[in-house]
Amino acid sequence: MSETEHEPDVTVDSRGATCPGPLMDLIGKVKESDPGTVIELQTSDDGSKSDVPEWLDEAGHDLLEVVDHDDYWSMYVETN
């Protein structure tokens, strides 16, 4: 398992959900979070690796890091 320096304030577990479930779960969480919140999105859907960064770009939030675990990814996001 890979290590990361990011300490999430909240974790969204979307493992097992298929597109666009993980992205919608993230959007829902971002909506209710204050600026500066670090969110860890756990996703096993390959599509998240492209649609999440694309949305973050559109909405002006930052993707800090993507950590590859064996059967899922952790995407660390900071809200602005």
């Binding site: 597109c19 666009p20 919608m24 959007i27 649609d51 694309e54 949305w55």
Partner: peptide
């Protein structure tokens, strides 16, 4: 629509 295309 919320995501990058017109339907899920």
């Amino acid at each position: 629509y919320p995501i990058q295309r017109a339907h899920a």
